[in-house]
Design a protein around this nucleic acid. Structure first.
Lengths: 236, 236
DNA sequence: GTGGCAGTTCTTGTATGTAAGCAGCGTCGA
DNA sequence: TCGACGCTGCTTACATACAAGAACTGCCAC
């Protein structure tokens, strides 16, 4: 028997909405009416509502009782929180990297880096590879399952990154850093690997900060205020 | 306007169920029928169902479609995951402790420690104080908001601790360690504080491991199997 | 023109009805 | 005695109806 079938309606709705929020297809502030979403997706309000509750717990959506649900704004404080958590977890994992690395996993990581170097790589594909690379690093240390927690917490960080990369287009440098880090790990030079990873994560964060200074309106602080209802109709 | 009114039925049901699961009042394997819970709590199935979904995402409950929902077993792997996450976050926070500590917060921590020394402290109260103490340490470093992520991830750890402390009754040592850690922080000796905290967290974990070796049945691995339906009726 | 008030229309929260499916038990047949 | 089969009762998943409340709209008085 399988648990909570991955093809339940709720799962599909949840994943769809989450993807659209993270990719900014549903931008911060967009209205998420249960009725409209249900109609759009061809399901009833129930699975939509359950998905919105879950996204609310993740901080990606804000639910105002009797008023409406809205995609949460990219909040600078939350971005920093996620950055801290991610750094803490990924660096701590390096302390537990075993002497001999799992060869299959290593091959997978190398293949991943190869793809990151592919010419004309599009942004979404890069993000996918980046996610998978960092997850792989965690798995090397035997803490792969901690990734899900990081993923759940870093929604705001991901959105901020997307805002940043749209402007700076600095994928190349990040790929180089990935190579440097993996090389250090393979060489057994954990201190270098730690330093490299820390610098890498900080660079990503600095990139976000740069964007924030340039376009503060994207990062409007997410207090309790309700967005005006007109800023709506982002759902096709 | 307040967000998601803290007094919504769902919030109450969720918090009630979560507390009962963490305190083992609802023991691992217990059946959680939506209908029974709704009747017991005097609400409809809707808020109960939404709460079970949230608890399912936290890993505290397993939902088997068309079969039933059950309190998840205390899974050794999940306990270890939470331990790793907690250690990573709490230790990383110490790197960001400022030169001058917030005096109000410091006073709060000292008062907390005083209460931990109170004679005849009961177990639940100790857990409360312990939680609050560790959260306070995080706040000292300005990363207080990361605590919620830790809390969400460490449900299994908490249940395992409760199983352990029922047997060993080793509160006293933990309180001493709390004092040592805070003293080191106040003295500005971050390396000592880190070492102390690490040892403290490891001691807690070792305690759990001892319990696990002694009573492995409590830690039955939580595979996909459905508990027998008879192991039920834990709800009064 | 402007402020206040009431109605309308939206929202989410909750309750309940319906559908689909698994498990267990009893029965029947060999 | 034991295995297969179908019925019964339970479960969750989903759909829908109803309730309560917030906010916008337009009218009306001034």
């Amino acid at each position: 028997m399988r648990e909570a079938s991955n093809r339940s309606n709720r799962r599909v709705v949840y994943e769809t909405l989450r993807r659209k929020v993270l990719t900014l297809e549903l931008p911060p502030g967009a209205s998420l009416s249960e009725n409209e979403l249900a109609a759009s997706l061809g399901v009833s309000r129930t699975p939509v509502r359950e998905s919105l509750i879950l996204l609310g717990e993740e901080g990606l959506v804000r639910v105002f009782p009797k008023v409406g649900s809205f995609v949460s704004r990219v909040d600078a404080a939350r971005v920093a929180d996620a950055q801290f958590l991610r750094e803490a977890v990924e660096l701590a994992a390096f302390d537990d990297i075993p002497e001999t690395l799992d060869p299959d996993l290593l091959a997978e990581l190398r293949a991943n880096l190869e793809q990151q170097r592919a010419p004309g790589l599009d942004l979404e594909k890069f993000f996918e590879l980046d996610e998978s690379f960092h997850h792989g690093l965690l798995r090397l240390s035997g803490h792969g399952r901690a990734w899900s927690t990081v993923v759940a917490a870093k929604g705001h960080l991901d959105r901020a990154r997307r805002l940043g990369l749209h402007e700076t287009n600095g994928m190349g440098r990040f790929v180089d850093e990935h190579h440097t880090i993996l090389d250090a790990v393979v060489a057994g030079d954990i201190p270098s690997a730690r330093a490299g990873l820390r610098a890498h994560l900080r660079a990503v964060f600095d990139d976000i900060e740069k964007t924030r200074r340039r376009s503060p309106e994207l990062f409007a602080s997410d207090d309790g205020s309700v967005p005006v209802r007109r800023s709506v109709a982002v759902w096709e």
